[in-house]
Design a binder for these strands. Structure first.
Length: 944
DNA sequence: CGGATCACG
DNA sequence: GACGTACGTGATCCGA
């Protein structure tokens, strides 16, 4: 006897919505949300496992909705009209469902103009007619109409989430009628989700009763005129048309043409290779392990059908994050042009001005934009439509003859109008760099887009990588385009063998440089398309994008440091360090490297036998500040000396020595580089050198600040937001007492002390201050106990008191976490998102770490948004008052540093104060004022 | 190149 | 039942 065929039809589209709402918002290693995809994958896995079961599938297909439009919209335009857009973090998962299905090498049915339900009905009946059993994997009530038996062939349903079979009895129980009458019940009761009208006032109970009693919808409607007078009678009479329309809408179209024959849906083993690739890509490691171990592997994995194995994914899009863009050919480096003549350059420029969008990339001699020399420029106007314009290639000893290239000054003169044209959009990856390089040649770039910042505004926090924050071009190309770029070191080499870009032969230089522009152009098209859908447009357009030229200008300005002063400090420090070193060695009874925590630990804890404290990851005794301070308190003089030694070594190597090195030869000033994508919260970060961590907390450290000075006739002005994060916390958590304190200009920590302890003195104020900050950072009783030097129990009491006095804070923390857990990201008042992929981690430490960061991110991030808005407006506001000589030099998170003529201070101060104080408006109106403190002086230290 | 340490908000 | 405790950065040094 031939085996009974059994076709499983998986209602894929409906499934992912349910999976989305039931499962935690997981993300894959790339940060794409995949919670629903994971649910879908496990479901397919389970089904495939049932292959050998008596009631399991012999044939299987996935049916998906192709488009949102169907013939039902033509009958009734309102159909599904009130359906909300799918959640933001579900949208990117739709294409992944297809990838998952391909990974299992399963046939997929997607037809336009009909719904998945119609295709399921058509296939179910076709299979039933052939004598097969059919199982519909869904719990959609519309599909329950199909359940039943004909000539010994059954159609049933399987709800995999509840692991429940739905057959005639279950349908009867749910609707009170037989499956074939379900459509009639649905037509009467309507469906708010699909916006099927039904009859107003008739719900499931009444509908099933009416159909049950009358035997059909038509009979029920016909019976209405003879009913005794009642509300129900009126409704039936009035609603007749709506009910008939609804009946048409819920009717499944069961005669659709079948694109794949049911016989071709045979399930005879899942080829393991494509599935393994997919599981690995998305970090579904437990399934991957099971697959690799061969235990519980889905279906029979023996039959590697080469034809099916080839059906995996679209080429070039291993990620599935995006739909492949079919109009884009693969990156082809041989398609690029080297522009070596004026005529060719003019032609590229003319085309760029015509298209109004051009990706630009500069090649230079150094990573430091202010110090770098321009070596060449690349442009891209479309995929593979890119060129490299060498400008200063050759000329070293290695090249006796320079390659043919357009004269430098001529090329700049030709490029300038294109790059300055306000009606042309320039696209760059970290375009601040190119702005600064080109500024040296008198080019002031007009409007720009930056793919690095677009990526940041879309995906901050999603990538776990460190350097570049996951927004570097190579990573983006890999992630979004599935393309591996040429690496700089492949072109120029590394280490001692590295050659300057200007000495790279033109062929290779063109491949590398033009590819960067090409890839940037493609990334821009991709990211720009995502931004409005994913809610990144606002923060990008209103905050980050306007900041690009402003920060570029600050970097070009630089700040003057007094080299002689730093040098004097270095010498003084060196003397003291030398003296301390001798004394420490004497105390220790041996010479050792004090700067080595390992050796220091051995001396202190092994040789001298002092009591150790905490240990680090490596199991090594910590010798950090807190430990040394404890030892010092226990009367060990060597600890004091090491502390001082540490402090001075730090100051000397990181500041007094390094800052001298950082002075630019040409400008005589120090130019930091700000990263707009460095901090997950939206803060800037500062590197090479970091000017956001110049000492201020100790007297000896402040001497370094004294070396930051203005040009003669000028002063430095420092303006900082006072307690901005606490003010924002008061606003965002809506704490009346704190808001009032800020309105009255009270000392906020004293006010907190008063609320908590009833009295204000030095101790209670200090404790209140600690608690205030603890709140901003996400508190734990142990953390607070450590800081306050009390027991965890006591710390918990403090926290309870705090929450009691300020219940808004507690509910803010609660609702923030709820929201981050559900959505996967936090949001600032200005709509900046920070993603927390580990917020639902099973690892407690990891999860709690994410929770603390998630509590802090909206506050720190909003503060960052506000100062960024102030910066973006500042120069304009100053210019409007005729203050053209005021230069904005530095940003230190809540502080801006300016250099300006002494005579301008009086006029500039109120402008600066106003711009900073009003920076949130008009987008956001805060319940608390933003306090600004301004100081001026002959050094940065004096300006405080 | 990672860990430890310490400079800043 | 154990986990391991404040958020965000960058630079320097040591030592594998």
């Amino acid at each position: 006897m031939a085996e009974k065929q059994h076709l499983y039809l998986v209602d894929g589209s409906a499934y992912i919505f349910r999976a989305y709402h039931r499962l935690p918002p997981l993300t894959n290693p790339e940060g794409t949300p995949v919670g629903a995809v994971y649910g879908y994958t496990t479901m397919l896995w389970k089904l495939a496992q049932d292959l050998d079961d008596a009631d399991g599938p012999t044939h299987l297909a996935v049916v998906l909705d192709k488009s949102s439009h169907s013939f039902r919209n033509d009958i009734y335009p309102e159909y599904k009209a009130n359906r909300p857009d799918p959640p933001e973090d579900l949208v990117p998962q739709f294409p992944l469902i297809r990838d998952a299905t391909r990974a299992f090498s399963l046939p997929m049915v997607e037809e336009p103009d009909v719904e998945a339900d119609d295709m399921i009905a058509s296939y179910a009946y076709a299979a039933q007619d052939a004598g097969w059993d059919v199982t519909i994997v869904s719990s959609d009530k519309d599909l329950m109409q199909l359940v039943g038996e004909k000539d010994g062939a059954k159609i049933d349903m399987l709800d995999t989430m509840k692991d429940a079979r739905i057959y005639i009895e279950e349908v009867q129980e749910k609707f009170g009628v037989a499956p074939e009458l379900v459509g009639d019940v649905l037509a009467l009761m309507g469906d708010s989700v699909d916006n099927i009208p039904g009859i107003y006032g008739i719900g499931p109970k009444t509908a099933s009763k009416l159909i049950g009693e009358n035997g059909s919808l038509a009979a029920a409607l016909d019976a209405a005129p003879d009913m005794k007078k009642s509300k129900l009678k009126e409704r039936l009479l009035e609603g007749r048309e709506m009910a008939e329309l609804s009946r048409e809408l819920v009717e499944l179209k069961s005669d659709c043409p079948l694109p794949i024959a049911i016989e071709d849906m045979k399930l005879d083993g899942i080829p393991p290779e494509p599935l393994a690739d997919f599981l690995e890509t998305h970090g579904f490691n437990s399934l991957l392990k099971r697959l690799e171990a061969g235990t519980g592997s889905p279906g029979r994995t023996t039959n590697l059908n080469p034809e099916k194995a080839d059906t995996k994914g679209d080429e070039g899009t291993p990620d599935g994050n995006i739909q492949p863009l079919p109009e884009w050919p693969d990156v082809d480096r041989s398609a690029y042009t080297t522009v070596q003549t004026e005529d060719a350059l003019k032609e590229w420029i003319a085309r760029a001005r015509d298209l109004r969008v051009v990706a630009v990339d500069t090649e230079t001699s150094s990573l430091d934009a202010i110090a770098a020399d321009l070596v060449g420029v690349s442009l891209a106007l479309g995929p593979n439509d890119a060129c490299y314009i060498p400008l200063r290639h050759g000329g070293s000893d290695m090249f006796d003859e320079k390659p043919e290239q357009v004269d430098f000054a001529t090329a700049i003169a030709l490029l300038k109008p294109l790059l300055e044209d306000d009606s042309v959009l320039r696209i760059g990856q970290n375009i601040k760099y190119d702005i600064n390089v080109l500024a040296r040649h008198g080019i002031a770039m007009g409007p720009v887009d930056d793919t690095m910042i677009m990526s940041f505004d879309l995906d901050a926090g999603r990538s776990q990588e460190g350097i570049g924050g996951g927004h570097g071009m190579d990573e983006l190309a890999e992630r979004h385009l599935g393309h591996t770029t040429m690496k700089f070191k492949d072109v120029c080499g590394t280490g001692k063998k590295a050659i300057p870009f200007g000495e790279v032969p033109l062929g290779k230089a063109t491949e590398y440089a033009a590819e960067d522009a090409d890839v940037t152009w493609r990334l821009h098209a991709h990211l720009a398309r995502r931004m409005p859908d994913e809610g990144a447009t606002r923060i990008y357009q209103r905050v980050d994008r306007p900041l690009i030229p402003v920060v570029a200008k600050m970097e070009r300005e630089g700040i003057k440091v007094d080299r002689a002063e730093l040098s004097r400090l270095s010498e003084t420090f060196a003397e003291t360090i030398g003296r301390l070193e001798k004394e420490i060695h004497k105390d220790a009874g041996e010479e050792f490297t004090i700067g080595s925590p390992k050796q220091l630990g051995e001396v202190l804890f092994d040789k001298l036998g002092y009591k150790g404290g905490k240990k680090g990851k490596s199991g090594q005794n910590s010798t950090d500040q807190s430990v040394l301070e404890r030892l010092s308190g226990e009367g060990h003089a060597i600890a004091d000396k090491v502390l001082e030694y540490r402090q001075l070594s730090k100051l000397k190597s990181t500041y007094t020595d390094a800052l001298q090195e950082a002075i630019n030869e040409r400008t005589g000033r120090v130019h930091t580089s700000y990263s707009l994508v460095g901090a997950q919260t939206g803060r800037l970060s500062s590197t090479d050198p970091n000017l956001q961590n110049i000492p201020i907390r100790t007297e000896i450290g402040r001497q370094i600040r004294k070396a930051f000075v203005p040009e003669s006739g000028n002063v430095l002005l420092a303006a900082d937001y006072s307690q901005i994060e606490l003010r924002l916390a008061a606003h965002m958590a809506d704490v009346p007492e704190l808001k009032e304190a800020f309105e009255q200009g009270e000392d906020i920590h004293s006010r907190t002390a008063k609320e908590m302890y009833g009295e204000v003195d030095r101790d209670t104020r200090a404790a209140a201050k600690t608690i205030n900050f603890a709140i901003l950072y996400g508190i734990s009783r142990w953390g607070l106990a450590g800081r306050l030097g009390i027991e965890p129990d006591e710390a918990q009491e403090k926290i309870d008191t705090y929450f009691q006095r300020f219940p808004g804070i507690q509910s803010y923390i609660h609702s923030t976490l709820e929201s981050v857990r559900a959505k996967g990201y936090s949001e600032t008042l200005f709509g900046r998102k920070t993603w927390f992929p580990r917020i639902n981690s099973k690892n407690q430490a990891e999860r709690q770490g994410s929770e603390r960061a998630a509590i802090n991110a909206p506050i720190q991030g909003t503060s960052a948004d506000i100062i960024k808005r102030a910066m973006a407006r500042m120069l304009h506001a100053l210019e409007a008052e005729g203050l053209n000589d005021v230069r904005m030099l530095l940003q230190v998170h809540d502080e801006l540093v300016f250099e300006l003529p002494e005579d301008d201070v009086e006029k500039a101060s109120p402008v600066i104060e106003r711009v900073m104080a009003e920076a949130a408006q008009p987008a956001v109106t805060l319940d608390v004022p933003l306090g600004i403190e301004i100081g001026t002086g002959p050094s940065w230290d004096d300006a405080h």
